[in-house]
């Protein structure tokens, strides 16, 4: 359907009014091309993060030290696959299918959260990911439940509920280690030492360097700035670390009475940009495993499609 310029102006005014009134934009509604493109980019990045994020945790499924922890971890990794499914479906409502997005991921043309380019070296890393990485993700994602795009906002409501569950499980895992044997406590502290700074980087570059923030805020895709969310996360984590009996690896971390927030040390943005550029410890490994799984699965997907075509059914 093509629209004339004056019609587009009217549609744009309707769209702007809906956003201003905090109404939800739905798939059939008119929306600016750039709004659509921004959402596809963001939702795809989020979906990719869910499926790449399965890898560092799946790394410990076969070595989980108790059957209870094994069940919790398998269920968590399964939830992440489920989140990937909802999110690819949300992107599909904007006219971009899962296959196209996966191709872009595999070709390195779309991103996923940089945090998953760090390795899970010990069992305690599973706890640190739950507590810190999922904690940071929730801080980022809770405001997205009020995002202006309906399908994304609704997917986020469900995802945030499950993420909070994961975050509590991670905290409880670390607490058990922290109160366990000396070796277990040391394992927990080492994991927190390695995951703390990368978790702070998950909120993205500082506000004055963030490329997409201003427009996303105006469209109510984003509700709070990167620095605001990062501060909120630090404020939540400091007392939690104390309860865990673990130390956050930042000598500059202290309560600032005047600001009503914790001050924290400088983030190494060079490291962030290096990892983003593909030079993190696991970038090649993560994308390599994803591509291999996809390529090894090609004959399975072809078989399902061929079977469906022969028998007149939709594919699995």
């Amino acid at each position: 359907m093509t629209t004339t310029a004056p019609e587009t102006e009217v549609l744009a005014a309707v769209f702007d009014a809906a956003v201003a009134a905090d109404e939800r934009i739905e798939p059939r509604d008119w929306m600016p091309d750039a709004y659509r493109a921004t959402l596809v980019r963001q939702i795809a990045q989020h979906a990719h993060s869910e499926i790449i994020g399965m890898q560092p945790e799946a790394n410990w499924i076969t070595r989980a030290p108790s059957l209870r922890r094994k069940a919790i971890l398998m269920a968590k990794v399964q939830d992440e696959a489920g989140h990937g499914l909802y999110l690819y479906s949300a992107a599909e409502t904007l006219g971009t299918g899962r296959d196209e997005l996966l191709d872009k991921l595999h070709a390195g043309r779309q991103r996923y959260s940089s945090i998953f380019n760090y390795p899970t070296l010990t069992w305690a890393d599973v706890g640190a990911i739950g507590w810190l990485v999922d904690g940071a993700a929730i801080t980022n994602q809770v405001p997205l439940c009020r995002c202006s795009y309906g399908p994304y906002a609704r997917a986020m409501v469900r995802i945030c509920k499950e993420e909070s569950f994961h975050q509590r499980q991670g905290y409880e895992l670390l607490l058990t280690l922290s109160r366990g044997t000396e070796a277990q406590h040391a394992m927990a502290q080492d994991a927190v030492d390695r995951w703390w700074w990368p978790s702070l980087m998950m909120f993205g570059p500082p506000d004055d360097e963030s490329a997409h923030s201003a427009q996303s805020m105006a469209w109510k895709i984003k509700r709070h700035s990167n620095d605001e969310l990062r501060q909120r996360f630090v404020d939540i984590c400091v007392p939690q670390a104390e309860s865990l009996g673990l130390t956050l690896p930042d000598p500059d971390l202290r309560w600032n009475e005047a600001r009503g927030h914790y001050d924290f040390g400088a983030i190494d943005w060079d490291e962030f940009h290096e990892v983003l550029r593909g030079n993190g410890p696991c970038n090649d490994q993560r994308i390599g495993q994803r591509r291999t799984a996809h390529e090894n699965g090609a004959w399975v997907r072809e078989a399902a499609a061929a079977h469906a075509a022969k028998h007149g059914k939709a594919t699995a």
Binding site: M54, V77, Q78, R301
Partner: peptide, 18 residues
């Protein structure tokens, strides 16, 4: 459980884990 992260399609990640 060894299939986690290696399945041929996302739906099978969910199904095999289930």
């Amino acid at each position: 459980g060894e299939w986690a992260g290696h399945a041929p399609v996302l739906e099978e990640e969910v199904a095999l884990a289930n």
